[in-house]
Design a protein around this nucleic acid. Structure first.
Lengths: 338, 338
DNA sequence: CCCGTAGATGTAATCGATTCCACGCGTCAC
DNA sequence: GTGACGCGTGGAATCGATTACATCTACGGG
């Protein structure tokens, strides 16, 4: 593969001049520029990004560490992150942590070894040592969706409290009184926040959230199934199950079906995180939708601001309730579009 | 950030010795090794992968260029690719082409500029110039799922002909005679192959595949919707629609619903590419399932073989039919598990 | 006792870019 | 006429690693 030296030789100039042409530095004669460009064309030369990175100490690459690529929410997040990054001239390397702290650490380490310019993280746990070190050492970093308290790292996320309140109002209006939740891991902010929001909203209606109605999940479908089975085995099962993410809602749906029961007739179901598929399930699932694309784009902008020396900003979006049919028929006026 | 020089100074040895310890070269004294390791620990030193790559001319990184990350089939493929690559000591950079040749080119260029060790591609079109150049220039490359004829590049894919035959048999057994297909872009191998397989299978039953029943899609949901609407507007609409990928099937489902019609009662539906969600749609969708995980892993192994100097092998897996309820009730004996 | 050899280590070249510094030359102002 | 200045250019240092080659020491055999 041709190097800058070959181009210089071909054009009859020094490597310095070639470099100047390539980075369009002002002081290059038209003549030299033309010859260099011709040589570049003739040799099919492309600058070696590795060498350039070594010298300039920047890779124009962002790392994105997410908890689970197979979760459509994160897939969409990853997609929007890549799009915005590309628009700003950066590439993205995605690390899939699969909700495992050890994998998360592995990816953070690898990304740091590759000297990525900045890190976008949706932490799986309370914060692995590697990540904390990196944050404290000043690696440009932004948390997205989930975050770790006590670190001076901007957070881009969405607030679901209002939407959870709307959801509980909707459920209460439908006559439901025994509401249960499948929570996410307590170590994640989204895991605990959603439970708290739900509990608070219930309290407004004077409803309790008994321990028996608080199942512990891990954001994966299987845990949704397991917890839901537990609920159904209760002497007095809940009337509604609220899953703290979309995958667990799917597991819950499976569990209900496996018993030959029906949603919403025998058990109503709602989920946090809306995804396109929820329109097509039987029945369509009522969910709380985050502006996922906005989230990803804002996170990238914050990170790039930080990298390029501008002050980065935390951003909080607002999630909203999308009513479908999985909680029972609702008054037409309360109906959102599919 | 500490460099190898700092470590050398701290340990009181030369950088050469540090490098030897790090790459566990045999001729290093125990004493030196201990001191170096202590210095590494003390400084929290991590080798700079960029510098290492420049010198050794290998990045231990694979590029994966796929057509659409949001398509669950490709998401799963990407996930299995990353897993296998990690197991073999490689990282993966994913490029999402969004079925756009220009984006595909952009990603191939960027990946090549970064001097990735090898490229895994599921081409969007007949082959962009950049890719053809790279293939001919000897860049280690493997095609996965889709491929470009006439290139000396191993192909890892699955053969759906038998499954398509099974599908047609299933449909014929259910009494359907007017079968239509939503094809993918003719420029992609999967686009044209699936139509051919379908046509051939129909021929075995003496059934025609009229042009009116051959809709042109682009592997995206919207095209499935559009084509299906066209079918429904026909004086004699088909009884079954076979979508050449999962997203177009979803679009078709939407189109049927939008007219207040029902699947399979008014129009039966089947899809190529099975995904977990098809179990949960209303009705569950009959699909042809590829061993996606196997595909991804085999592709990585082939590519790494090529990179490390072993002869790479093309691999073809076999897809299989998974019968659900979207084509009508079928005899219990013919029922696959969900 | 000396030489050959093997093991441990250091010096320096190298990978492919960027960039500081110096140099030559032409132009312009005084 | 000359000094100052600016432009275009090239030489060489540099980024952080790897590795060929040289050097030195110790040890064993003849």
């Amino acid at each position: 593969m041709a190097s800058i030296k070959d181009v210089a030789a071909e054009a009859g100039v020094s490597v310095a001049t070639v470099s100047r042409v390539l980075n369009d530095h002002p002081s290059v004669s038209d003549d030299a520029r033309t010859r260099v460009l011709a040589a570049v064309e003739a040799l099919g030369y492309r600058p070696n990004a590795v060498a350039r990175s070594l010298r300039t100490d920047q890779t124009r690459t962002l790392g994105l560490v997410i908890s689970d690529v197979m979760n459509p929410y994160f897939t969409e997040l990853a997609r929007s992150v890549e799009e915005e990054a590309r628009a700003l001239g950066y590439s993205v390397i995605i690390g899939n942590a699969d909700e495992r702290p050890d994998l998360q650490d592995h990816h953070v380490t690898t990304l740091l070894d590759r000297r990525i310019d900045g890190l976008l993280v949706s932490p799986t746990d309370g914060g692995s040592p590697r990540m904390l070190d990196a944050a404290r050492a000043g690696t440009p970093m932004v948390f997205v969706d989930r975050w770790i308290p006590g670190l001076d790292v901007p957070v881009v996320r969405s607030d679901g409290r209002a939407a959870v309140r709307d959801l509980v109002a909707h459920l209460h209006g439908l006559g439901h009184r025994r509401l249960a939740i499948i929570a996410g891991p307590a170590a994640t902010t989204t895991g605990s926040e959603r439970v708290e929001a739900f509990r608070a909203a219930l309290a407004e209606y004077g409803l309790p959230l008994p321990d028996a109605y608080t199942g512990q999940g891990d954001f994966q479908a299987e845990s949704g199934r397991r917890v839901t089975e537990g609920f159904l085995d209760l002497p007095e099962p809940p009337e509604v199950v609220f899953a703290a993410d979309n995958l667990m809602a799917l597991g819950a749906l499976d569990a209900v079906r496996a018993r030959g029961l029906r949603v919403p007739h025998d058990l109503a179901l709602a989920a946090f995180d809306d995804i396109p598929w929820f329109v097509h399930t039987d029945p369509p699932i009522t969910a709380i939708a985050q502006p996922t694309g906005e989230l990803g784009r804002a996170a990238v902008r914050a990170l790039v601001d930080r990298i390029e020396g501008r002050p980065p900003q935390s951003v909080t979006f607002t999630a909203r309730l999308v009513v479908r049919r999985s909680c029972g028929e609702s008054p037409v006026t309360n109906r959102s579009q599919t």
